[in-house]
Design a protein around this nucleic acid. Sequence first.
DNA 1: GTCTATACGCCGATAGAC
DNA 2: GTCTATCGGCGTATAGAC
Lengths: 179, 179
Amino acid sequence: MPRKPVARDAVLDAFEALLIEVGERAATLDAVAKRAGVSKGGLLYHFPNKEALITALLERLDLLADEDTALMKAAPDGSAAYFIRSSLWADTPMDRAFVAATRLAEVAHEETRRRFAAIQQRWLDVLAEDVGPDVAKAVSYMGDGLYFNAIFEGGQEGGNAGREADVDILLGVLDRLRK
Amino acid sequence: MPRKPVARDAVLDAFEALLIEVGERAATLDAVAKRAGVSKGGLLYHFPNKEALITALLERLDLLADEDTALMKAAPDGSAAYFIRSSLWADTPMDRAFVAATRLAEVAHEETRRRFAAIQQRWLDVLAEDVGPDVAKAVSYMGDGLYFNAIFEGGQEGGNAGREADVDILLGVLDRLRK
DNA sequence: GTCTATACGCCGATAGAC
DNA sequence: GTCTATCGGCGTATAGAC
């Protein structure tokens, strides 16, 4: 098991946070280093170039997506309800990695786009087991819509105030579709 | 009525196309000028700085969103069905302006985010008249989800192949909710 | 109205000290 | 393992010719 220095994780956390809060363009090596409390040279010891930073973020995302899919499958009230609830911004490690990666996909980063497609497909498969293929599509798009909106708030706390009620509404609609 | 030179529109079109196809980062003044077939200096005669280019794009978006909302209200099979159908990438002027502006919002451009929120609210109001507030929310999020996915394809034609079927599925789900 | 030339800053990355 | 110093390149913007 490869040991990973704390500084490395701190840098990755800083990169993630900047992507979420100020967007891809402002998530420069200088900014990341400053936020992580290291020098640019120090940062580049852990990640030889920016692409390595992105790769590490995508690996983190894959790992968290796997864990999340397992939880989703095991959810007591069904994976569809779990999926809708978890599509709300809750500042979880998974939320953070997902939204941060979204910023990169928007900048036409191909590898990031491929990862998203793969994760989405897995989710869709699990959803279909719960509610059938058609409603699964509807639920999947609703979840994407929730993320789409979360993305525009820069990971702020207040932005969710109105949307927690929305999740309840969506769960209600889902209930009508189950019957 | 202010006359707008063709060159100006060509520049704006080029900016929009680059945002869609290669993302915000690559939509530089150099790239926009080249694509529009003018020099950088020529570009900067029409738009004194990059912010002016963004402002013009947002004005175009507002105009198209107004037209679209009117069509939505008048749709024969209801605004909800119209909304879902029109959330699929169809390379319309509205689609292009919307997705292009999305790229800017992702980069934490505040004014762009405000415009989006306003447009979304108007849509939601129209949808609620058709299907009630709860289903309106569900439909709204599904539409956002469709756009969220369109965004990851860079405005390519092929990307829609699978999603046209998805729209039919969503319309079917909507029908079940109307009853 | 459109062009070329140029100023200037910031970003990613390298070299090398400690 | 972390730092400072520095380079080359690109992106925005200005000046001024045509």
